Amino acid sequence: MKAAPLPPPADDGEMAAWKAPAAMLLVQLFNTGMVLLSKVSIGGGMFVFALLTYRSLFGAAIILPIALLRERGKWKEMYWHAAGWIFLNAFMGYAIPMSLFYYGLHDTTASYATIFINLIPLVTFILSLVFRMGMSGSLKIVGAVVSIGGTMIISLYRGKILHLWGSILRPHNEEHVDAASHHHLRGAILLAGSSLMFACWYLIQSKVLKVFPYKYWSSMATCLVGGLQTALAGVIFRRDKNAWKIGWDINLLTIVYSGALATAAKYSLNSWAVSMKGPSYPPMFMPLSLVFTVVLGSIFIGDDITVGSLIGTVLVIVGTYIFLWAKGNERLEK
């Protein structure tokens, strides 16, 4: 009697079909936690460049043993050309955009700051067309427009406030003083600049992976260089040693969380996704961070959920899935 034939092994493409969306979903969850924790820490007076330096160096320390195990000896292939691109990658993908984002977050709210994160797919889409790096197809254009339209509704239309639950860390009826401050316009400009830099970063990261195709060493080096860049900027802007002190408080939790998940895990997962799907793939998941921020921001720090935010959230989800469906069909056709 013949034994039943074993099922064929899963195709790498089939594995990536669910791994890539799952990885990007985790990235957006990590991003949401980072935004909420950072808002609390920065609002409490933590020095922005200290937060950026510590989280980046901590992230590099976490990735280093993984790089040593998974890509042993590959660091020797990092010649000056690759090192130059990694320096630019850290500057355009961490030091500049995260500095602008944190200072913009200080002047606005978590939900408002996340809206500007969701401008990144549209900007990346435009840059991808300019540099001919993919992202063609009418359905993907529709998905991008619908997602961005959802973020604009959340930004421009509030509607009735829905008191669904009380917040954990802040009373529901407490007003966010910094959101209504006269620095709100400045914050919006900083956040817009951050979105532009992040969009450029995805295109630069694609180039980095071509000249140095080792995602763990590339991510570790990017975190390390980004930490050194922000440390230098911090020393220039503030000489007070007390600005760099941390204790056993929310600031330490923010550093550990941001370094481990929002830096190390995020950069590694993004690098892997770009190598598998191209530079236009990760940004299209960013609208989901808006959904997470609206809900979790309401639960933890008392951000209002409004009719406008719910309508916009639905459009964000619909637009994201239109894009993913179109992307999947495009891969099948190829």
Rank of each mutant, 00 (worst) to 15 (best):
F116H: 06
V130N: 05
R132H: 03
V130K: 10
M135Q: 15
S128L: 15
T108C: 02
G134Y: 10
I126F: 04
L119R: 11
R132A: 03
Y112K: 03
I126P: 08
N118W: 00
A113T: 02
S128E: 13
F116G: 02
F125V: 15
T109F: 02
A113R: 09
R132Y: 03
F131I: 14
I120P: 08
D107L: 08
T108I: 06
L119K: 11
A110R: 02
N118Q: 01
I120Y: 06
A110C: 05
S111E: 05
L122H: 06
L127P: 14
A110T: 05
H106L: 11
L119G: 12
T114L: 03
V123A: 12
V123M: 13
L129H: 11
L127H: 14
R132G: 01
Y112T: 05
L127A: 14
M133Q: 11
L122G: 06
T114I: 01
S136T: 14
S136M: 13
A113W: 04
M135H: 15
I120N: 00
S136H: 15
F125A: 15
A113V: 00
Y112A: 09
F125L: 15
F116W: 05
I126A: 10
M135R: 15
M135K: 15
A113E: 02
I120D: 08
T114S: 04
V130H: 09
I126W: 06
N118K: 03
L122Q: 06
M135D: 15
L105G: 09
